[in-house]
């Protein structure tokens, strides 16, 4: 290879490079700074427990982001779904029914979201803002009016799931593989990417734009519903702060993973995986090296800005006159 081809290679694979370089950098830096404590058996367990929730949502959000959508209701939907699951299970229903209830609530939220934006041509992020307020409002109202804490009376199996490493790892692998296959090997994923780049060209190629958006949101809904159960398995309670800020964590994670913010053909499922690991390790590492919690957010913000800057698209070329 000549010298010329190296910068060309970097330019062509810019996104992939940023994606993995970030993860590698975070891993090496914090391993060194914590004298290896980052990779201790105990800490890896902590990381995985945090990862499984964030990763599950991120996979769902890849479907939403890739077609140009944006969602900020995930955190509030998690709180609402968890709450419904608690009530269902406390009422004596088996765990499976509780899980289904959580998924049903989450899917319903996302369906309302996409139907509003499809029908009225509203920006998806705005309708998700409405969903966020409604879901968060319902939880806050319920928490403030009930005398007791809203908690699982019998944590039972759920608690075991939250503790068992083999189960957590299985869930991560399962969600990852299924998400990857659907996104990269089926029409839904390919159509989503086409819509993200150019909805007009997509529809002229036979893509049913609204239908594809609907399915993408349904997938996101199912995964967010699952994430609410995983989150519940760790805490067993719901407060008005449950899931708070989760929606933003997911967006930052995806960007760190090299996801194009406006979707399109450069969207990759691997962004969800790489990004959520980077994000969790970054948070975990910053706390471990003793960075004050007040500063963590600031550092995250700076890194986020840097990555967004690196991922910015070049403006389009000029158009030839007729």
């Amino acid at each position: 290879m000549s010298e010329l081809s190296i910068p060309l290679f970097i330019k062509k694979n810019q996104n992939t490079l940023i994606q993995y370089a970030g993860l590698l950098l975070v891993l090496i830096a914090f391993t060194v700074m914590t004298d290896g404590a980052l990779l201790s058996d105990f800490n890896i367990r902590t990381i995985l427990k945090q990862l499984v929730v964030l990763f599950t949502i991120s996979v769902g959000m890849v479907f939403v982001f890739s077609h140009g959508g944006m969602d900020i209701s995930a955190g509030a939907v998690i709180a609402l779904s968890s709450m419904v699951a608690i009530y269902t299970i406390n009422a004596g229903a088996p765990l499976a029914v509780g899980v289904l209830a959580a998924i049903a609530v989450s899917v319903a939220c996302y369906m309302v979201n996409v139907i509003i934006s499809n029908l009225f041509g509203l920006m998806a992020v705005i309708s998700s803002l409405a969903i966020m307020f409604v879901a968060r409002g319902l939880v806050t109202y319920q928490v403030s009016t009930s005398s007791a804490k809203i908690a699982l009376t019998d944590t039972g199996v759920l608690r075991e799931i939250g503790r068992s490493m083999p189960i957590i790892i299985t869930i991560i692998v399962l969600v990852g593989v299924v998400g990857y296959v659907i996104f990269h090997f089926t029409k839904i994923g390919k159509h989503s990417k086409a819509i993200g780049d150019n909805p007009l060209a997509a529809s002229q190629s036979g893509v049913r734009v609204k239908y594809t958006k609907l399915i993408s949101y349904a997938i996101a809904g199912v995964l967010v519903g699952c994430a609410s159960i995983l989150s519940l398995s760790r805490s067993a309670v719901v407060s008005e702060n449950t899931g708070m800020g989760m929606e933003m964590d997911v967006i930052v994670a995806l960007v760190l993973g090299g996801m194009a913010l406006n979707g399109g053909s450069r969207s990759k499922m691997s962004s969800a995986f790489v990004g959520s690991i980077t994000y969790v390790v970054l948070n975990n590492g910053l706390v471990m090296v003793g960075v004050a919690p007040e500063v963590v957010s600031l550092i995250r913000g700076i890194i986020f800005l840097l990555v967004v800057f690196l991922l910015l698209r070049r403006p389009r070329g000029e158009v030839m006159p007729r």
Binding site: K187, A201, Q204, S205, R316
Partner: peptide, 19 residues
């Protein structure tokens, strides 16, 4: 603007309607 997706690859454009 309407028939091709400029950002996507030749392959992605060719297969889109034939999926």
């Amino acid at each position: 603007q309407e028939t091709l997706i400029m950002e996507a690859s030749i392959k992605e454009n060719l297969v889109l309607s034939a999926l």
